[in-house]
């Protein structure tokens, strides 16, 4: 827990919390929507980084946990009138539980096979949900406006969703830091570097990987629950959108794989870029091309990403930039 006494921890809290407070202070709806999206992407990217950046297992289909959390919470809110906070928590827990159960067989696979398996999982879950009547099948589920009455109307509900995503983003970032700086995290990094050597040094790779996969599924589960609560409608396509998974991966690589700050920086920068490209008429339908191109450039030239590059360039910065 000594990570909680470092300047980086306080910097992280102040910066992320500060940006999160901006729309609350000036009450702007459009700013709230923009920052909501960035915070949600921070959660997705940081969660992927916890498994991919620390452990070396590329979870391509991580979005499956976003969709699952969203569906479970939506179902509870719609059919059992559960308040959205406990519903979201249950969504997160169910995502974790499923990651735990799937992780036991799937994390035996190494490298590309694991990455492919996670895509497979996302597709299987999407097809299942598409045919699962309690979740509304292919058409999904939607709220009538009465659901929001419990939260003082839909306008208020949007604010609740915003507070919730801010809290989850902070929790996720702090967890990412605590994991990286813990004994458990050191074991994960050792597995990432050389799983067989790690095992000879006394680390149980299967146990560590399943545990970290379980943790990394919790936050996207919460984020999905909050996003679809705000959205008022959930369908299989947007819930299990592989493209969003890939975009989150680009954010991790852009900011710096294996660092705490990287996915946060990556999410913010990527979203700025995307917003710019989408409003710019030349590029409007072009942003995925740019995302792909960006990924290629990073992988070829700055594998460490922005934060990783800074840490390499200025070793003295390392104490302040995890």
């Amino acid at each position: 827990m000594s990570a909680l006494r470092t300047p980086f921890f306080w910097g992280l809290l102040v910066l992320l919390g500060g940006v999160g407070l901006l729309p609350i202070l000036n009450g702007s709806d459009s700013m709230r929507e923009d920052i909501f999206l960035v915070l949600m992407l921070v959660i997705l990217a940081s969660s992927i980084n916890i498994i991919m950046g620390y452990t070396g297992y590329v979870s391509f289909g991580h979005i499956v946990f976003f969709g699952l959390g969203g569906y479970v919470a939506f179902y509870l809110m719609l059919n059992h009138q559960v308040h959205f906070v406990p519903a979201a928590v249950v969504g997160g827990i169910v995502s974790s539980l499923i990651a735990f159960l799937l992780g036991i067989p799937v994390l035996r696979l190494r490298g590309a096979y694991f990455a492919l398996a996670t895509i497979g999982i996302n597709e299987v879950v999407r097809s299942f949900v598409t045919n699962f009547d309690p979740f509304g099948g292919a058409t999904g589920m939607f709220f009538n406006y009465e659901v929001y009455n419990g939260y003082g109307g839909s306008k208020n509900a949007l604010w609740y969703a915003y507070y919730a995503i801010l809290v989850v983003a902070l929790l996720c970032a702090v967890s990412s830091l605590l994991i990286k700086k813990s004994r458990f995290g050191l074991g994960l990094l050792a597995i990432r570097e050389d799983q067989d050597a790690a095992q000879v040094l006394g680390i149980d790779p299967a146990r560590s990987k399943v545990l970290v996969y379980t943790i990394s599924a919790f936050f996207p589960g919460l984020a999905g629950a909050i996003f679809f609560f705000k959205n008022g409608i959930i369908e299989p396509g947007p819930a299990f959108d592989l493209l969003r998974s890939i975009e989150a991966l680009v954010m991790v690589m852009l900011g710096g794989y294996g660092t705490v700050a990287g996915p946060i920086v990556g999410a913010a920068v990527y979203e700025q870029l995307r917003a710019f490209l989408i409003t710019n008429s030349t590029f409007s339908s072009f942003h995925l091309f740019v995302a792909g191109f960006l990924l290629l450039l990073i992988v070829l030239f700055v594998t460490a990403g922005l934060v990783g590059w800074l840490r390499q360039r200025a070793p003295r910065l390392r104490r302040y930039l995890e």
């Binding site: 050191l186 000879v200 040094l201």
Partner: peptide
């Protein structure tokens, strides 16, 4: 190991800390 297996992207101190953390004494970080 005869063919050395350093944990390349970790520092030398971190490499050795892994040994101490997960070895016979299971030390704290």
């Amino acid at each position: 190991h005869q063919i050395m297996r350093p944990l390349g992207e970790l520092t030398v101190r971190e490499n050795v800390t892994v040994g101490a953390c997960f070895g016979r004494e299971s030390l704290s970080l």
